[in-house]
Simulated scan of single mutants.
Amino acid sequence: MVSAVFHSPLEAAAAHVAAPVLSRSVAAVPAAAAVPVQQAPEPTPRAPRDFSWIWLRVLPPILGFGLLILVWELVALKNSNGFPSPGAVWQQALTVFSDPFYSKGPNDQGVGWNVLSSLKRVAMGFGLAAAVGIPAGFAIGRFGFLARMFNPLISLLRPVSPLAWLPIGLLVFKGANPAAIWTIFICSIWPMIINTAVGVQRVPSDYMNVARVLDLSEWKILTRILFPAVLPYMLTGVRLAVGTAWLVIVAAEMLTGGVGIGFWVWDEWNNLNVANIIIAIFVIGIVGLVLEFALIRIATAFTFEEVKS
Rank of each mutant, 00 (worst) to 15 (best):
Q39Y: 10
A40L: 15
A40D: 13
E42M: 15
T44A: 15
P45F: 05
R46G: 09
R46I: 10
R46E: 12
R46N: 09
A47T: 08
P48H: 09
P48W: 07
R49Q: 14
D50K: 02
F51T: 09
S52E: 11
W53V: 09
I54V: 15
W55M: 15
W55F: 13
W55P: 05
R57D: 11
V58N: 05
V58M: 11
V58R: 05
L59V: 11
P60W: 04
P60S: 02
P61H: 06
P61R: 04
P61N: 06
I62A: 00
G64T: 06
G64I: 09
L67D: 02
L67W: 02
L67I: 05
L68W: 11
I69Y: 09
I69Q: 04
L70Q: 07
L70E: 02
L70G: 06
L70D: 01
V71M: 12
V71Q: 07
W72S: 05
E73Y: 11
E73S: 15
L74V: 11
L74E: 10
V75C: 08
A76Y: 04
A76R: 01
L77F: 10
L77A: 10
N79W: 14
N79M: 12
S80D: 10
S80Q: 11
N81H: 12
F83R: 01
S85W: 00
S85K: 03
P86L: 01
P86Y: 01
G87K: 06
A88S: 13
V89N: 03
W90D: 02
Q91P: 03
Q92G: 12
Q92F: 08
L94E: 11
L94D: 08
V96I: 13
F97R: 03
S98P: 06
S98D: 15
S98Q: 14
D99A: 14
D99R: 13
F101Q: 12
F101P: 05
F101S: 10
S103F: 15
S103N: 15
S103W: 14
G105C: 08
G105Q: 08
P106N: 13
N107G: 12
D108C: 01
Q109T: 13
G110Y: 05
G110A: 07
G110P: 01
V111S: 00
V111A: 05
G112T: 08
N114G: 00
V115K: 03
V115D: 02
S117Q: 14
S117T: 13
S118P: 03
L119K: 03
L119T: 02
L119G: 04
L119Y: 04
K120N: 11
K120V: 10
R121N: 06
R121S: 06
V122M: 02
A123D: 08
G125T: 05
F126L: 11
F126Q: 02
F126D: 00
L128G: 12
L128D: 08
L128V: 14
A129M: 07
A129Y: 00
A131G: 06
V132D: 03
G133A: 14
G133W: 01
G133L: 02
I134H: 00
P135Y: 04
P135W: 06
P135D: 05
A136Y: 04
A136G: 11
A136F: 13
G137S: 02
G137F: 00
F138G: 01
F138L: 14
F138V: 13
F138Q: 00
A139K: 04
I140T: 01
G141Q: 02
G141F: 04
F143M: 08
F145K: 08
R148V: 09
M149W: 13
F150T: 05
